[in-house]
Structures are given as C-alpha cells and as structure tokens.
C-alpha cells in the first residue's frame, strides 16, 4: 500500500505535468482537487485514463471518480480493492 501510494504520486506528477511539485509535497490525505493540488476537470479525465492504462481498471461510471480521486489514499484503496476482487 505504501509503495502503491508512492507510485501513484510519481505517476500523478508525471502524467499531469505537475512541474515543481515533488512526491514529498503530496500528503496521502491531501485533497487532489480544489484547494489541494489544484487539479481540474481535464486532470480528472486524465486520471480515469491512468487507471485504465496502468492498472487495467475501467470506471463504469465517470461520476465514481469524484470519491476515488479525492486523495492518493482513496485512489490506492480503490486500486487495491479492485485488484483483490
């Protein structure tokens, strides 16, 4: 789980072109959208593609994304639960 969170932080920085943001600056529970990393609607769509491409998980309903992409912790928990299932 810790490795997965680290991996997610690296991927988020790379995929979403977060220049000048380091892994250490993203807390596990920090909100990704709004006040947190300041991600927007295009980033949310990009995270859906990332789940599919890197973890083979397709979101049945894009609206699910809101909870899943709340923080790195919620993303990691979702991926872990999908893999276990």
């Amino acid at each position: 789980m810790t490795d997965l969170k680290l991996e997610l932080k690296e991927k988020i920085i790379e995929q979403l072109n977060l220049e000048d943001v380091s892994v250490a600056e993203i807390g596990d529970k920090d909100p990704l959208f709004g006040e947190g990393l300041g991600l927007d609607s295009i980033d949310a769509l990009e995270l859906i593609v990332m789940l599919d491409k890197d973890y083979g998980i397709k979101l049945a309903d894009p609206k699910e994304g809101k909870q899943i992409f709340e923080s790195v912790e919620t993303m990691a928990a979702y991926i872990t639960s999908k893999k276990a299932g």
């Binding site: 072109n17 295009i42 980033d43 769509l45 990009e46 593609v49 599919d52 491409k53």
Partner: peptide, 9 residues
Amino acid sequence: YFPSPAVFV
C-alpha cells in the same frame, strides 16, 4: 489505444 483528454483538448 489510450487517447488522452489532456492532449486532445
């Protein structure tokens, strides 16, 4: 096949 919304826009 992984079209990226961030590229497409």
